[in-house]
């Protein structure tokens, strides 16, 4: 048991490190690692990934909330969509075949890798105020090098809709769906990029908790497997976040995005070949 725990723990540490560095999150790397490398059934893999997602996002959110980046009103409001989505996703997971889940996973992974490669922090034009966002008091400000910068929030209904999908994917696949959440806030709601990523992170824990309860009661969360995964991803992502803050890691990110793209293709292939 020591060897099994150590190997899974070390792999998870790398996955957490990689996930933090690419901004994809640890969960998205854990599932292909456990299924493709260790031959773990995808349902156990999803259960273990889900708890590691809660650990890393809550840990990171603690720092972002304190520094005033996350927009808590936007986050709370959109959590209505993500938690209901997560419930739907977890319910859907009970009816879909493992190979179908694997294929969906591969496609989402491919999108996430592409989005993380493409996404750059871009200058945002000042947006005019929006009626719904104003009523919901979402407009806020965030810290920049030149002090607090005000911003207006837009596109609440579209953002809400995309968030529901993010929740479904999170509940179905055991991931944080950070890439889809950022799409909703950055593209649809026109939030500043830094606010989008940190608010996404803030929401991931609650979204994952909504489906984790269902997975736990269905027996998808195995303690002996979840233990090294959760601890490994947590330590790895803390290390990755620290490195990200200090160094310029563009090349490294590019390489990792490519690796994740390959894993995604393999999951899709295996899904169609019926290997799950």
């Amino acid at each position: 048991m020591v060897e099994f725990t150590a190997v899974i723990g070390f792999g998870s540490l790398l996955a957490g490190f990689l996930g933090a560095l690419t901004g994809l999150g640890g969960g998205v790397v854990i599932v292909p690692m456990l299924t493709l490398l260790f031959g773990v059934d995808i349902r156990y893999a999803i259960g273990a990934a889900l708890v590691s997602v809660i650990a890393t996002s809550s840990g990171a959110a603690a720092a972002y909330v304190r520094d005033g980046y996350s927009n808590i009103r936007v986050g709370m409001f959109l959590e209505i969509a993500t938690t209901i989505g997560a419930l739907s996703g977890a319910a859907l997971a009970l009816y879909l075949k493992a190979s179908v889940i694997a294929i969906i996973f591969g496609v989402v992974l491919l999108y996430s890798a592409w989005a993380s490669y493409r996404h750059q922090e871009h200058a945002m034009d000042v947006q005019p105020p929006d009626r719904i966002a104003t009523w919901l008091r979402m407009d806020s400000a965030y810290p920049t090098a030149n002090g607090l910068k005000q911003y207006h929030v837009r596109g609440v209904p579209l953002g809400f809709g995309i968030m529901y999908i993010a929740g479904v994917l999170s509940g179905l696949l055991g991931i944080g769906s950070g890439a889809v959440k950022v799409l909703a806030m950055d593209q649809a709601m026109k939030l500043p990029f830094k606010v989008s990523t940190t608010t996404s992170n803030f929401m991931i824990g609650v979204t994952a908790a909504a489906s984790a309860g269902i997975y736990l009661s269905r027996g998808y969360i195995d303690p002996a497997l979840a233990m090294p995964v959760m601890l490994g991803v947590l330590v790895g992502s803390l290390g990755g976040a620290r490195l990200l803050a200090g160094a310029k890691v563009t090349t490294l990110r590019l390489v990792f995005s490519a690796v994740i793209g390959l894993l995604a293709v393999e999951m899709i292939y295996n899904g169609f070949a019926g290997k799950f």
Partner: peptide, 26 residues
């Protein structure tokens, strides 16, 4: 984890086939 690993020298069960956790762990 430390308690579990100390008491179980051999791997417990297999994760290749999904069986679901026993009721006391869910």
């Amino acid at each position: 984890g430390a308690v579990f690993v100390a008491r179980h020298a051999e791997p417990v069960g297999s994760y290749r086939v999904f069986q679901g956790e026993p009721v006391q762990y869910r």
